[in-house]
Design a protein around this nucleic acid. Structure first.
Lengths: 111, 111
DNA sequence: ACAATAGTTAAGTGATCACTTCAGTGTTCC
DNA sequence: GGAACACTGAAGTGATCACTTAACTATTGT
């Protein structure tokens, strides 16, 4: 469920750009239109739309058009998938360190 | 502490490449040399070294050279920083949804 | 009907990316 | 000392990126 490498590629790639992270940050406080997302950014509306398309293709956001306004919102499941990938690797490493610590403590006892 | 946009850029960018994620995955199971990391990958050793430099510059791994062998290991704090950025945005969104749900439930009671 | 609004699309540009090959450097083993 | 080993660095290449401008569509307000 959403764990294929291609999707992770798209998500991490999408998050790699500061403008796109800023959009995600804004959306984490609630849905917004394209112009609202563009407002704090020093770039053309066209560029913003392109970033938005990257975010949507990655699955990190979902958009819906009503009249002439496109409303964007966060897709928390996608965020969770990225989060989960990182978390699993970090935990694997930390569990390994714990086991190593236990081992060293034991061999010290037996010296 | 590690939350500046530039560092996050580097980390997410580093994680955006499948080869680099594969290396991080391998390293999550324990330290490895450059050649060990290269072994499952279908690319030149030189390319692997370049990926490794990207990972190290991002802070996601740390490397140490002993004799002619460079040993690479994961830097869990960096993983935690990336994880944390995503987690905060996701939680902000989900808390918002909860509040919205409460509000709707209340207004329904008062109808 | 007309103008303003909200967004979309296409084409182009310069920068960065993910490699490659090839020619090194320093290290260990015999 | 010399061969094999484990990288390292520089240069080049084709692909992708993050924009820009400009021309366009569809919707809303007067």
């Amino acid at each position: 469920m959403l764990h294929d490498p291609a999707q992770l590629d798209l998500m991490f790639q999408a998050l790699a750009d500061p403008a796109r992270r800023q959009m995600v940050d804004r959306l984490s406080r609630g849905p917004a239109s394209v112009s609202q997302l563009a407002e704090p950014l020093a770039m053309s509306l066209s560029a913003v739309v392109q970033h938005l398309n990257v975010l949507e293709a990655s699955g990190l956001i979902r958009t819906e058009k009503l009249g002439r306004v496109r409303t964007c919102r966060i897709e928390p499941q996608a965020l969770r998938a990225a989060e989960h990938w990182i978390n699993e690797r970090r935990l694997a490493w930390e569990r390994r360190l714990d086991r190593l610590g236990d081992f060293l403590a034991e061999t010290k006892d037996e010296s």
